[in-house]
Amino acid sequence: MNESRFLVRQVEPAQPLRFDPGKCIGCNRCVNACPIDLLLPAQGKNQPPVPAYPDECWYCGCCVMECPADAIQLRHPLMNQARWVEKNKLKEGHKWNCSNG
C-alpha cells in the first residue's frame, strides 16, 4: 500500500492557546494557575504544557497573566472576534453602499 500524506485527526472548533516553544521556559505556572485545569504539564524539560482540553477554555487569559516569559497567546474562536471600524469611515458608508449597489 502507498504511504499517504494524509492523516486522521480530531477537528477542533477553536484553538484557544498557542505556546511559543522558543519563549516557554517550562515552568508550568500556567498549568497550576488555570481555573479550569485544562493544561497538562509537558513531558520533556523546557517544553510547553499541553492544552489537553481546549474546548473547556473559559478564555479568561489567566495563563497569559501568570506566564513569566510572555510565551502564551490567547485566540478567541473566530465567531467571537467582534468587528470594529474607523469612526471617520461611518459617514462614507452610504456612498459605498450606493456605488456598490
Binding site: A14, D37, L38, W58
Partner: peptide
Amino acid sequence: SAAYPGLAEFRPLS
C-alpha cells in the same frame, strides 16, 4: 455546547 463547553455560561466551567 459540546464544542465550547467552557463558554456556555458567564462564570468559569468549573
